[in-house]
Structure formats: structure tokens, C-alpha cells
Amino acid sequence: MLNAVYGALFEAEHRSTFYVPYWKFPLARWLVPRQRKFHKDLKVINDCLDGLIRNAKETRQETDVEKLQQRDYSNLKDASLLRFLVDMRGDDVDDRQLRDDLMTMLIAGHETTAAVLTWAVFLLAQNPSKMKKAQAEIEQVLGQGKLTFELIKQLKYIRLIVVESLRLYPQPPLLIRRSLKPDVLPGGHKGDKDGYAIPSGTDIFVSVYNLHRSPYLWDNPNEFEPERFLVKRNNEGIEGWSGFDPSRSPGALYPNEIISDFAFLPFGGGPRKCVGDQFALMESTIALTLLLQNFDVELRGSPEEVELVTGATIHTKNGLWCRLKKRSDVH
């Protein structure tokens, strides 16, 4: 199953960067070896998910929505995201929709979250003072207690590290949208004042990587500064941009596209925004917290030796080799 997931992920990355969509040609799925393997991997994943969905639906017991909303999933033997989805949606939920939702979490949410954590560690290892600051916050907030949602709310600096890592290394680095009808895009800063005519069916590529490192929108755009998300930044002559203002999204645990007026788009924005954004951010926060709570991290070699590879995600060519040292001062 694990090999099938990685196989499907690699194929998705291959398709996102290849020039000609040869996989759409008749008979390609049978004649091209990598396409045969992809469809074999896909069958393994679908069969596994179908079995899990069938079991979850067969063992569903409660039908009262109010009771389900109050259910303590931490005490369930088979607690899982699938169990929650099945319980909340009822017996009539479409199996294909459930499978698609799980596939999104399994495929789209696996490599992306791993990449965020990789680059967060890469950045922290080059900034020991920031790592110590993060570890001090963890010790102050957690003490000897378990990590809970209420405590995550207090891990402000850890959350800022996650989003700053996403700013510098967005996952994915490129968003693709297709126009359903003719339109005119605004010219933007220093662009054509009349805008740009877009015919129906045009594929539009949004470089999130360049947007997140734009000197027009960010101070010291290439520097790792998690604290930047706490500071209001007024528009300084950038036409059509309202600046950066944390007060625009009160109560938000993580900075988002509303706060930044779409200068920060790690999960996209609007109706096509990633459905798993909060899940991914929370997952990354928890994993990074547990890592820093127990270990000091150093790069094995220089930062320049870490080669960057861009595809569906931004990842390292040969992994991120580090030295981990168990923290002796952990309570």
C-alpha cells in the first residue's frame, strides 16, 4: 500500500511537469510501462480504501447528528478521519465521494506536509537562536503535560515557524487554474493598465514561490523571519494590494490569504482553496513541536549542499541529512 501511494504521488508530480499529456492518448495506459504501473498502484489504493469505507459504514451505530457532534473520538477503538466522515454524513453518503476525500488526505496531504516539515527543520538548523526560542516556548506551554488543542493555541511562535516555512517553500509552488469563460485579468503592479485578455479554456499558472518572495510585498523576502506575520504592513504604492493586516481575520490560528490580501497563498484562495489547509497546518505544528521538544537538530554538511527539486512540491534531491541530539534538559 505504501509503495502504491508513493507511486501515485510520483506519477502526479510527473504529470504536473511533463510537456505533453501523453497519458491521455488511446492505449497509453496499457502500452506505456509507467502508466501500467500507475493504474496498478491506483487499483491497490482504491481497493484498500473501498474496504475501509465498507467496514466503517457497516459498523456505524449512531444516527443522531447532535450525539455525533458530541462524540468523544479519542476513546474510540477505531478512531480515524474516515470514522468521523462516515458518522457525520450518514449511511447514504456516496462511497466515491468518501474515497475521493480520503485520497486527497492520503496523497495530497502526505508529501506536502512532509515537505513543510523538511524545510522548517532546514531553516531552524541554520538559525539556532530561533530554534532555542521555539523550544523555550514549548517548555513554557507544555511543561510535562500532553499536547492538546488548547495548548496548540498557545504555541504562537511554532505556528509562525510553520507558516514562514510555507512562505519560503510553498507546497505546491505553483497553482494552475483554467478559465471557464473569456475574461480580463488586471494588469497588476507595473503591468498593462488595460489588463490581459484571457480566452476560454486558458491554463493560468500562478507562481506562489515568486509571489511569496516578491520584494514588492515582503520586507527581506528571502530571509527566515517568522515574526513578520505579527506586523502590519501598509501598501506602499502597489496598485490593487491592500497590504498586510493581521486584524483582518480575528481568531485565525494561522495567517491566511485574507490577512495578506492574497500575497500569502500556500493553500490557494477562494472556492478552490485546499480543503485540508487547517488539517495540514495542525499536523505540521504537532509534528514540529514533538521534534523540537525532544531533539536539537543540526545539518550534516552545509546548507549549500542541500539541492532543491521542484515538481508537485518543493523537496530535496537527496534528502535532508541531519544530526539529532537528544535534549538532556527535557523534563
Rank of each mutant, 00 (worst) to 15 (best):
Ala125Tyr: 01
Phe10Tyr: 05
Tyr22Ala: 11
Leu324Thr: 08
Pro303Phe: 10
Gly143Trp: 10
Pro172Trp: 00
Asp94Pro: 02
Met103Cys: 06
Arg29Ala: 11
Leu106Asn: 06
Glu227Lys: 05
Leu166Phe: 07
Asp329Cys: 12
Gly237Tyr: 11
Gly51Asn: 07
Phe229Gly: 11
Gln278Ser: 12
Met103Tyr: 01
Asn3Phe: 05
Leu288Ile: 00
Ala115Pro: 05
Ser179Asp: 12
Ile53Tyr: 12
Asn55Ser: 15
Ser129Phe: 07
Thr104Asp: 10
Glu58Asn: 15
Tyr157His: 09
Phe25Ser: 10
Asn46Ala: 11
Leu174Gly: 03
Ala280Trp: 00
Arg213Trp: 01
Arg36Trp: 10
Tyr22Arg: 13
Cys48Phe: 14
Tyr6Ser: 06
Glu164Met: 04
Pro172His: 14
Leu230Gln: 10
Arg60Ser: 04
Ser207His: 14
Gln69Pro: 01
Asp92Ser: 09
Asp92Trp: 02
Asp72Tyr: 03
Ala8Gln: 00
Ile152Tyr: 05
Gly240Thr: 13
Val163Leu: 02
Arg228Phe: 01
Lys77Ser: 06
Gln97Arg: 14
Asp101Phe: 10
Gly301Gln: 14
Asn222Pro: 08
Leu106Tyr: 01
Glu227Thr: 08
Leu68Ser: 03
Val5Ser: 02
Lys325Ala: 15
Tyr157Gln: 08
Arg34His: 12
Lys317Gly: 07
Lys146Pro: 07
Leu160Ile: 06
Glu239Gln: 09
Thr289Tyr: 02
Val32Asp: 04
His110Thr: 09
Ser302Phe: 03
Ser207Gln: 11
Ser207Tyr: 11
Leu281Phe: 02
Leu299Met: 11
Asp203Arg: 15
Ser214Trp: 00
Arg54Asp: 08
Thr316Asp: 13
Gly191Ile: 11
Gly311His: 09
Lys181Asp: 07
His315Gly: 15
Ser302Met: 07
Lys40Ile: 08
Gly276Lys: 01
Leu102His: 03
Trp241Met: 10
Thr63Leu: 12
Glu283Cys: 13
Arg54Glu: 14
Arg83Gly: 02
Val206Thr: 07
Ala28Val: 06
Ala136Arg: 12
Phe38Gln: 01
Gln171Thr: 05
Glu227Gly: 10
Gly311Thr: 01
Arg99Cys: 08
Asn55Asp: 14
Arg177Asp: 15
Glu307Ile: 13
Lys181Pro: 03
Ser207Pro: 15
Glu304Ile: 14
Leu217Tyr: 01
Glu111Gln: 07
Gly187Leu: 04
Asp261Ser: 08
Pro250Leu: 08
Asp47Ile: 07
Gln140Asn: 12
Leu166Gln: 11
Ala12Val: 01
Phe38His: 03
Pro186Val: 04
Cys322Tyr: 08
Glu164Tyr: 07
Leu142Thr: 05
Phe264Ala: 04
Val231Glu: 15
Lys193Glu: 13
Asn256Pro: 15
Ala114Glu: 03
Arg36Cys: 11
Ile258Asp: 13
Lys37Leu: 05
Tyr216Ser: 15
Leu151Phe: 09
Pro226Met: 02
Ile107Ser: 01
Lys146Ser: 13
